[in-house]
Simulated assay, not measured.
Amino acid sequence: MIFGVICAVALTGAGACVVIAVQRAAARADAPPKVTVTPAEALEGEPRVVFRNTEIGSRYGLVSVVSLADPDGPRAFTDVACDRVYAAAGTTSCLRVKRGLATTFEAVQLDADWNQVESWGLPGVPSRTRVSADGTLVATTSFVTGHSYMQVGFSTATDIREVGGKDLGNLEEFTLVVNGRRVRPADRNIWGVTFARDDNTFYATVATGGTTYLARGDLSARTLTTLHAGAECPSLSPDGRRVAFKHDVGGSTPRWQVVVLDLASGAETTLDGETRSVDDQVEWLDDDSLLYGLPRDGEAGVSDIWQIKTTAGAAPSIFIEQAWSPSIVRS
């Protein structure tokens, strides 16, 4: 009898703890934002940053906007939820997971007023997206197998579409040139598109034979030509002269450092002032600075956007707290 009473008390206490934990989690999820909120109309027409809000609360995951001149200032929230987002010239690409009895994955194109223009299914978990500078092309990458670049044997699908036009196809269908030779490897993977301003040239990661490459793409010729080994998730600078990418310097477990490559000279600058592993596709803040997201230690689901100068030894600093997936919109 004594043992039974002890068990009953223990179970009651455990049940109470569970109830309290659930109540606290629900309260956090429903909490209003602590940041200062401003109407989206207040930021129209001025240079701004579009990103995914990661403050735990009722607006977690919503596409948000701050002034580029005051990234710590008032934050405007849309009613659009995305897992990855990118905006340029009145076009926004939003990738998201649709959870339900059967989990599906979706890409959504939005106009300047955050209205849905078009949507289409993705074959796997959303990973990367980019919009060309003039808002006419959208690239998407999703994991077909595996959920992370940390996993061995992951597989991706990367697609480029004309906004309001045709699907230009999966990049694995393009002719691949590796080290000057046309090849058709069965193990090719392509991800992380970044567009040049001519709406024909782009750069992407190509992985084959255990090596990752920076590759230059040609949409009209439907070709991908490798340029540089050891590069992942490239991002072309606004002046089109340099590419920033992540480079794996780890051993059995990947650890990525950010590197900036001068396309004309081939000179590399490793941003070794950032000692943490940066598993992101960086965004150029301007011709001399980069932005990237990092998860917070000990706060599941929360991330911050950091900035760093493109010089060796430069120290990183917080750009926007509780944020992820930035893009700079200047008009």
Rank of each mutant, 00 (worst) to 15 (best):
R241C: 10
E232R: 15
T212I: 00
N53F: 09
L62T: 09
V117G: 07
P32V: 11
F154M: 09
Q116E: 01
E172N: 14
G240T: 10
R48L: 07
D134A: 10
L214A: 13
D280P: 10
A215H: 13
E162R: 10
G73Q: 09
L101T: 11
R128P: 01
L95T: 06
H247D: 00
A107G: 03
R222W: 04
I2A: 14
L101D: 12
D218H: 08
A314Y: 01
T311I: 13
A267D: 08
Q23R: 14
S252F: 13
G164S: 12
G121M: 02
D72V: 00
P254M: 01
W306D: 06
R255H: 14
A76N: 08
G4Y: 00
T275G: 05
R96E: 04
V258S: 00
N179L: 02
V5N: 06
A244K: 08
L236P: 02
F3C: 12
G230P: 05
R28I: 09
P316W: 09
L122C: 01
V9P: 10
A8K: 04
C233E: 07
T36G: 08
V97A: 08
V63A: 00
G240E: 09
R99E: 13
R48F: 07
V35M: 10
P326I: 10
G124D: 04
R99V: 12
G135I: 01
Q109F: 05
A264R: 15
I160L: 04
